[in-house]
Simulated scan of single mutants.
Amino acid sequence: MAGMDRKQGQGRRTAPGRTANPSAAPKHGLARVLSKLGVCSRSQAEKAVREGRVQVDGRVVLDPERPADATRQRILLDGEPVGEAKRVYIALNKPRGIVVSAADERGRDTVYDLLKDAGLPWLGPVGRLDKASEGLLLLSNDSAWAARLTEPRQHVDKTYHVQIDAMPDAALLERLAQGVVEEGERLAAKQAVLLRAGEKNAWLEIVLDEGRNRHIRRLLAAHDIGVLRLIRVAIGSLPLGELAKGQWRHLSPGEVAALSR
């Protein structure tokens, strides 16, 4: 029995260089850890690591995928200790012609130009609005919250007011709800209603509960209808309200919680 006990004990020995408790081993790469802490985006973290600007327990790490654990290891970015950033959630009224990107290779204005000198930490966009679109855009450094809002299975409603170059009838509104298949993707509106009509164009309110690239523009183009203006006026229960173009505000804790549900 003593020999069997020794063999069993030997079988439980930890291989050199491995932790004795697999559940305690870091599960995320260094770049993802930095992103989840809210100090920068995933791509910015990868760049910083490759440039040798990140240290873990006193050693420079050049591999963004190397496992790391901020709760057990001392991580420095540009020589400064990295800790979990205070969570910030803002709503911004994006003007038309502004790019939703941290940097633009063509030198165009971005949403971050609207936030400079505001004293905010790094924030990432929660979803997108293309350059020609305007209206409500959320930004946050809470990557888990952002992921829940943008997860397709959550079906968070997004409401748009869309000016089109046509005079819609009831049949068209029904076809928008029925949807089309375009380039292998099904595009449909959860709801489409007429807001008002002029002599040559009209305004629709279109609600989506999923968001594909240029969803509304492609859906309307499939019916030979062009978009003159596209404004996102609400995300879930959060309205754009009276927020002026180019301006932003912090979300209240209640608004953050309501969007999470």
Score class of each variant (00 low, 15 high):
259 L>T: 07
51 E>P: 03
111 V>D: 01
216 I>G: 04
69 D>R: 09
232 R>L: 09
64 P>I: 06
120 L>C: 06
247 Q>R: 15
209 D>L: 05
150 T>L: 15
249 R>M: 04
249 R>N: 07
71 T>K: 13
47 K>Q: 14
229 R>T: 12
19 T>E: 12
150 T>V: 12
105 E>K: 15
69 D>A: 12
191 Q>R: 15
21 N>V: 13
5 D>M: 13
148 R>G: 08
121 P>W: 03
239 P>H: 11
81 P>Y: 07
235 I>T: 14
228 L>S: 09
251 L>H: 06
151 E>Y: 04
137 L>H: 05
106 R>H: 14
100 V>F: 01
95 P>W: 06
10 Q>F: 01
238 L>P: 11
260 S>R: 13
236 G>M: 05
245 K>A: 11
177 A>H: 00
158 K>L: 06
85 A>P: 02
184 G>A: 13
131 K>W: 02
69 D>G: 08
233 V>Q: 05
66 R>C: 02
256 V>H: 00
118 A>Q: 15
186 R>P: 01
157 D>H: 12
27 K>I: 04
106 R>I: 00
151 E>Q: 14
68 A>M: 03
130 D>P: 10
54 V>K: 00
56 V>D: 00
52 G>S: 14
211 G>Q: 12
250 H>M: 12
34 L>C: 06
180 V>A: 06
19 T>V: 07
212 R>W: 03
161 H>K: 14
29 G>E: 03
97 G>S: 10
44 Q>P: 02
110 T>M: 10
255 E>F: 00
192 A>F: 02
30 L>V: 03
142 D>Q: 10
83 G>A: 07
67 P>D: 11
93 N>G: 11
35 S>N: 11
94 K>Y: 02
84 E>I: 03
88 V>T: 14
25 A>I: 00
97 G>Q: 11
222 A>F: 05
78 D>N: 15
80 E>D: 04
26 P>I: 04
240 L>W: 04
73 Q>P: 02
94 K>T: 09
26 P>Q: 09
88 V>M: 05
78 D>S: 07
250 H>Q: 12
171 A>P: 04
136 L>E: 02
4 M>T: 09
151 E>N: 15
242 E>F: 05
232 R>Q: 13
209 D>E: 10
179 G>T: 11
